[in-house]
């Protein structure tokens, strides 16, 4: 464990808390993409299936449970909560996710760390899908133009988590001789790059104060 990875995980938890605060606490799903939420649920349920046979640490185990639980809770409320369903922008949340999921599944089978293991295929699929899962959310925000404060903080926290993980990988690459993980490097770079435009507009909007809303062109 290093400081970048720890702060990355904390930033990831913060993004879940912000989203749960809005959806469950505030009973609103306005501006939130159910498609992105569902893809994250798929990402965590597939990647952390090794809960059943691997144990890296208590920290690792509990956070896996937390991420699966939080992502499923978000999907549940967006799908079945009456006020969440009423505020969800279903018409605008229209990114064609089959074009993300299918190629990720093919890539997961073809390019993974160990061809003999089905779990490695599933694991690689989850890494690829996570890299692009934010796209429907960014697409929805772009359509709406103006982003609510809580939503912008949520997307920022999610982007910060991945940027901190890039620093974590660099740190581990320099300090651990056996550390390779080429798949995660490339996917992580792609994922973080997708946030760059949002980061720019977030910074431009928030430099006058955290309560200024983000406007996207």
């Amino acid at each position: 464990m290093n400081i970048f990875r720890f702060l990355g995980d904390m930033s990831h938890i913060l993004s879940f808390l912000l989203l749960l605060h809005k959806i469950v606490g505030g009973k609103s799903a306005a501006g939130i993409s159910l498609r992105t939420a569902e893809m994250y649920a798929i990402v965590f349920c597939t990647r952390y299936i090794d809960l059943l046979w691997n144990f890296a640490s208590l920290y690792n185990y509990l956070l896996k449970l937390l991420f699966i639980g939080a992502s499923l809770t978000i999907v549940y409320f967006m799908r079945y909560g009456p006020s969440q369903k009423a505020t969800y922008n279903a018409d605008e949340d229209a990114f064609p996710v089959q074009y993300l999921i299918a190629p990720c599944a093919v890539l997961g089978v073809l390019i993974n760390q160990d061809h003999s293991s089905p779990f490695e295929m599933v694991w690689a699929f989850s890494i690829y899908l996570e890299a692009v899962a934010i796209l429907p959310q960014l697409f929805l925000l772009q359509k709406q133009g103006e982003v609510e404060n809580l939503t912008s903080h949520y997307v920022f926290a999610l982007g910060a988590y991945r940027a901190l993980y890039l620093l974590n990988w660099m740190f581990r690459f320099m300090t651990e001789p056996d550390y390779q993980q080429r798949i995660v490097w490339l996917s992580g770079l792609v994922q973080t790059a997708l946030y760059c435009d949002f980061f720019y507009h977030y910074y431009q909007s928030k430099k006058g104060g955290l309560n200024k809303s983000v406007k996207l062109p």
């Binding site: 990875r5 691997n54 640490s57 760390q113 056996d178 390779q180």
Partner: peptide
């Protein structure tokens, strides 16, 4: 994986 390590990251 082929590097023999359990995936220890989230």
């Amino acid at each position: 994986g082929s590097d023999g390590a359990v995936h220890d990251e989230l």
